[in-house]
Design a protein around this nucleic acid. Structure first.
Length: 373
DNA sequence: GGTGTCGCCGATAAGTCCAC
DNA sequence: GTGGACTTATCGGCGACACC
């Protein structure tokens, strides 16, 4: 533990005094324990069915969650509390027991906490569970126990108006095209730098005249204003290929960039400054930081905005703000939707893309956010 | 001094291996 | 079959360095 017994008792007393002053409880889930017992519903089984089932994990990976849940249930049974209603001390005791009685190393204990936290966050998101957003005993205990390193913070939550302000201030055509493309397509830096000209269809006479190969990739299947992201290219982490629509704003950003882009025969859409070769991942990250820093540097509560922010914001928009079907989100992110990771069979890839594309195109047409740059 | 590139390091999440 | 350690792939941070 990171605290000595004296300082722990001291801060506990001070926190208790604050809680009393504000009418807040240090054990806010205790009142729900008996209801959970009577309901005879296993919240971990719901997480398994709703979340793990949707992720279609390998058996070994799913078992890691189930093992963590089983050990947690055993621990909470000894503590005499329903496993879905812990307080900070229950979690700290679990960490202690894992380290001492089970003899686990910290990596294993942290892994179990991560699985338990995933279940807790699922309960907190679901309105039918009583778990509040502003109390998470797993995160609280995790942050107060000294493991090897500091916790990973969440990216900042940028309202759309703030995002518009930043994008509106990006004057460089390439930088703006990169940021808009990542925000609207949810691409990783590696996937963005890997886009080749034939894999992008932009319906504009001037652009097509300048780049005759544009949009000629067979996986686009003649679809206009789209981009193909392969899953089997070095540097692309995704398990599935995807074709995504380009909305008006993305097309406009790409249009202005492509007309200014050096036409030196390089197949890559986004070129590095100066050398005009394939853009490096570091360069992608650097231009994000140039646009978003210092305003969105790392803070006490959030990590800094980097090139990964676009993918995070994209996922948050569709999953949280739009509550879109999880299969469609998996498709848009290039995650495994069902079955196993895909091989290189073009027929299978075409069928897979055809299954989801129409719904995705409708989503983009009707619900995609605007950046107003 | 500003900008871009490179290599190294550590974190994370999922998959794999192996002892029991 | 279970549980834990290890491996792999990807990513971001950071400092050193080169170039203008």
């Amino acid at each position: 533990m990171s605290e000595t017994p004296d300082t722990t008792a001291d801060t506990d007393a001070q926190r208790a005094a604050l809680g009393a002053a504000f009418g807040r409880s240090a054990d806010p889930l205790a009142e729900f324990a008996s209801t959970f017992e009577q309901a005879n519903v296993d919240p971990f089984e719901l997480f398994d069915a709703d979340i793990l089932g949707a992720r279609n994990l390998a058996v070994g990976s799913r078992n890691k969650y189930l093992t963590a849940f089983r050990h947690w249930r055993e621990h909470m049974a000894r503590e005499g509390r329903h496993p879905a209603c812990p307080n900070e001390q229950h979690v700290k005791a679990f960490i202690h027991r894992e380290r001492t009685e089970r003899g686990n190393n910290d990596e294993t204990t942290k892994m179990k906490l991560q699985k338990l936290n995933a279940a807790y966050e699922y309960w907190a998101e679901d309105p039918q569970f009583p778990h509040p957003h502003d109390y998470n005993p797993f995160k609280l205990a995790r942050s107060k126990v000294a493991f090897d390193g500091p916790d990973r913070k969440e990216p900042p939550r940028l309202p759309i108006d703030d995002l518009r302000d930043v994008v509106g201030d990006v004057a460089h055509l390439r930088d703006r095209a990169v940021i808009v493309t990542q925000l609207k397509l949810g691409l990783r830096a590696g996937e963005l730098r890997n886009i080749k000209l034939p894999e992008v269809s932009v319906e504009n006479e001037a652009v097509r005249k300048h780049y005759p190969d544009l949009g000629t990739h067979p996986m686009l299947d003649g679809r206009k204003n789209t981009v193909y992201i392969p899953h089997n290219r070095e540097g692309n982490k995704s398990k599935r290929p995807r074709v995504l629509p380009l909305d008006d704003e993305t097309r406009r950003a790409l249009f202005y960039y492509l007309l200014a882009r050096p036409d030196n025969g390089e197949p890559w859409m986004f070129l590095a400054p100066e050398q005009h070769t394939q853009m490096k991942r570091k360069t992608v990250n650097a231009l994000w930081k140039k646009a978003f820093h210092p305003e969105y540097d790392e803070t006490e509560h959030h990590r800094a905005v980097t090139s990964h922010f676009g993918r995070h914001r994209f996922t948050t928009f569709w999953r949280v703000e739009q509550d879109v079907n999880i299969d469609l989100i998996h498709y848009m992110r290039g995650d495994v939707v069902g079955g196993s990771p895909m091989d290189d069979d073009r027929g299978a890839m075409n069928y897979y893309i055809h299954t989801y594309y129409e719904d995705i195109e409708q989503l983009y047409r009707e619900r995609m956010f605007t950046l107003n740059f």
